[in-house]
Design a protein around this nucleic acid. Structure first.
Lengths: 347, 347
DNA sequence: AGTGCTGGGACGAAAAATGACCAGACAGAA
DNA sequence: TTCTGTCTGGTCATTTTTCGTCCCAGCACT
């Protein structure tokens, strides 16, 4: 923070919150445009009148335009958004927090986005956008990218922008169905990524909960073997992080599974593995998919997860042997993680 | 203005006025400290409650302290003031206006201070402070400095700070009494300058309105001759600019004088000379003092005058043959000057 | 043609800003 | 010493602004 901004804040402490609020609104519009007031209110979690005051102002400033279809940001608005990006991060103290988190989690690169996706759904889009931008930056050097499922991954795919199609890109579904909704399955996500970027994709269709024999047999199938081969060549893996119990429930796991997971003290889940608070593997779903050892060997492990409710899971997962190299999260999760570690230190 | 500040203003247009207001208050406190709320209100020309809201905030921000004797600025406050100085100027568009004025008036260096000293008396102190700082910067290279009288000059002397006494400095009263109040006479001002800076001073005591014979005789006196000699060696002259009619009245000029001045179309006055709108000499008081030719030869002519009411005078004076090299004025005067010249162009 | 959005308008209620006043405290003068 | 003036901090009715909540006409997509 430079001396000027610092002095500005001394003289106008109310500026900080105001700027952050308006920035958020503008950013949300830019992400969801065209969008109406009501929808915007729901997303931002504030009343209509409050939003209206700010959108009226933004319109007067010619940062957004009101069309019959909804509000859209102008070129000027985009420019403002771009110019203020770093400043808002500084204001929220996110830059400082990133450094702190890097030490706590032992992850070399961390990006924290403002606010909490638990409270404000739109933040999920912001996270997705940031992850998408980061990924796009990798496309030049890396072509074989494994992706998992989940709503977070879906958010990323939405924000990918196919500025220049790259046929060499290959998106590999890191797991089979894993019992998720079709829209959030790794297969669907891989397809979405490929469509947005002009690349190709490889899917893995395998039912969950196979018997040991059936599983062993499937693993000998050529298509499956080919996938396993691809996993070995994976350069980048992008994945979400889940809360162990939530995931177990969502996947309709059997009673024995849930018991194993719970009794084992599982906290986090990623690509079918369940980890306890120390990052030790508690359980893994018996289905084909990328192996932890393969993850370990990939150049870049991009973990994406936000919301205070994911804090424990992130903390747990970041301790596992295949600790991610990059983490994109939000303020809510970051604050909670730091709070948790501080409490731990006090004990 | 950098992109960041620009974007900030787009997003928070109300910030601009707010910042300027608080900056002004803080600056005024710093100049008049210790100062009470009531006094501050009078100076700033706003109601007590309004001031109070801001001073409460400034106190909470620890930029000022409330003592029983009044409010004083803290070290942090001074720092903020310093850091925000340039920004406030930018905000007020003063930087742009300075460039414009430089072209219009043909003066190489112009400094415009915020607000209008006609409306807010404290602005006179700001002008004085700026002039004092500028002068102090010259003390290293220039030692022989001529000063005139007037309230503006008095304001400068108040703001001079004797950080390091310099015995080599010599302040020369540019004129005799010229019928002003004692406190605002050139002699008094020269003494005040000398006292503040640790230098010496030379006064010129000569009654005004001498007959032609008496004047000629006086000019042959050694003390007077010595002064005339000093004027030849003057390196810097600091002076105010007056409105011709006001000055004529204030000096209790004779009826013939006033007639000459008025009929001649005099607009401005400086060191006893009266100039018309084109900068031509209309009349000069017959008393010893620095001559226009001598002013012309000085290295630096620092003219100081503020307030919209002085606009015409400044415009007139800046056209004379000994046009100043530096002008320190305020926003009120600057705006009025530009407005006047624009009207002139339209005709 | 219908339906579900959109922005804009309106209006009472609530909150904040404002203006005006007073009490107690301290500083400096007499 | 006392006295006087100015300072801050507090209070409170009044006004102004803001807020929450509806409703409406119109466009877009189906």
């Amino acid at each position: 923070m430079d001396a000027l901004s610092d002095a500005q804040q001394k003289l106008m402490p109310e500026m900080s919150e105001l700027l952050k609020k308006r920035y958020q609104i503008l950013q949300t519009i830019s992400l969801e445009q065209p969008i109406g007031r009501r929808t915007l209110c729901e997303i931002a979690g504030v009343t209509e009148r409050e939003i209206r005051k700010d959108t009226d102002l933004l319109r007067n400033q010619q940062l957004i335009e009101m069309k019959t279809a909804g509000m859209i940001v102008t070129l000027q608005g985009l420019e403002v958004l771009e110019n203020l990006k770093g400043f808002v991060r500084e204001l929220s103290g996110l830059t400082d927090m990133e450094v702190e988190l890097q030490e706590v989690l032992g992850i070399s690169k961390i990006v924290i986005l403002p606010q909490d996706s638990d409270e404000i759904p739109a933040v999920k889009s912001h996270i997705g956008k940031e992850a998408a931008r980061f990924l796009e930056g990798l496309f030049g050097s890396y072509k074989k990218i494994a992706v998992t499922g989940g709503s977070t991954m879906a958010a990323i795919s939405k924000e990918l922008v196919g500025s220049k199609a790259d046929q060499a890109l290959q998106f590999i579904a890191a797991r089979g169905g894993l019992g998720e909704d079709v829209l959030h399955q790794a297969n669907t996500i891989a397809a979405a990524f490929a469509e947005k970027t002009g690349g190709s994709f490889k899917t893995l269709y395998l039912p969950d909960h196979l018997s040991a024999e059936a599983f062993a047999m499937m693993m000998r199938e050529p298509v499956i073997k080919e996938m396993m081969n691809l996993y070995d060549q994976t350069e980048v893996i992008v994945h979400g992080i889940g809360n162990a119990k939530e995931m177990a429930v969502r996947r309709h796991s059997s009673i024995e599974e849930v018991e194993k997971i719970c009794l084992g003290g599982a906290v986090s889940e990623a690509f079918g593995y369940y980890f306890d608070k120390d990052g030790e593997i508690v359980y893994r779903i018996r289905t084909a998919g990328i192996q932890l050892e393969q993850v370990r060997k990939t150049d870049i492990v991009l973990a994406v997860a936000g919301g205070a409710s994911k804090a424990r899971a992130i903390l747990s997962y970041s301790k596992n042997v295949a600790s991610p190299t990059v983490l994109i999260t939000d303020e809510g999760a970051a604050r909670k993680i730091l709070e948790l570690t501080k409490k731990l230190e006090e004990l």
